[in-house]
Lab assay of single mutants.
Amino acid sequence: EDDHHMEFCRVCKDGGELLCCDTCPSSYHIHCLNPPLPEIPNGEWLCPRCTCP
């Protein structure tokens, strides 16, 4: 699979289990988001950068 997502968290710059945005290459740990997510959501997810007006 050709995955163009970042291999590190945009916030802390560390790797591991990352949540990938469905519209851009950004990846995040769920605990690095503000507010943090309790678990990885099902379905499409947009990062804070893509949901800002």
Rank of each mutant, 00 (worst) to 15 (best):
K13V: 05
T23S: 11
N42K: 14
P36G: 06
E7Y: 01
P38I: 11
L19E: 02
E17H: 00
E39F: 11
G15S: 10
N34L: 07
H4Y: 14
D22Y: 09
E44V: 08
H29M: 00
H5T: 13
G43H: 08
H29R: 00
G15P: 08
R10D: 08
C20Y: 14
P48R: 05
G15N: 07
I30Q: 08
C32H: 02
G43Q: 11
F8M: 10
T51L: 12
I40A: 14
I30P: 13
C21L: 00
R49A: 13
F8T: 09
R49P: 07
D2F: 15
G16I: 01
C9L: 01
C32S: 01
P41Q: 07
Y28A: 03
G16D: 06
P36M: 06
E44L: 12
G16C: 00
C9I: 01
V11P: 01
R10H: 08
L46Y: 10
E39H: 08
W45H: 03
S27Y: 13
S26K: 05
D22H: 12
H4T: 12
M6K: 15
C9M: 00
T51Y: 07
M6H: 02
M6Y: 03
E39Q: 11
H29T: 00
W45Y: 05
D2Q: 15
L19I: 14
D22V: 08
L18C: 01
D2N: 14
L33F: 05
G16W: 00
H29D: 01
G43L: 07
S26C: 11
D2M: 15
S27W: 07
D3R: 14
D3V: 07
H31P: 05
P35G: 05
P41D: 05
Y28S: 03
C12S: 00
D22P: 09
S27L: 11
N42V: 13
S27F: 07
D3A: 06
P35V: 04
P48F: 02
V11G: 08
D22G: 12
H4M: 14
E44M: 10
G16K: 08
P41I: 09
G16L: 02
L46S: 11
C50Q: 01
P36A: 11
I40R: 15
H4K: 15
P36S: 09
C47V: 03
L19F: 06
G43D: 08
H4L: 08
C20N: 15
F8H: 06
C20W: 14
Y28L: 02
E1Y: 07
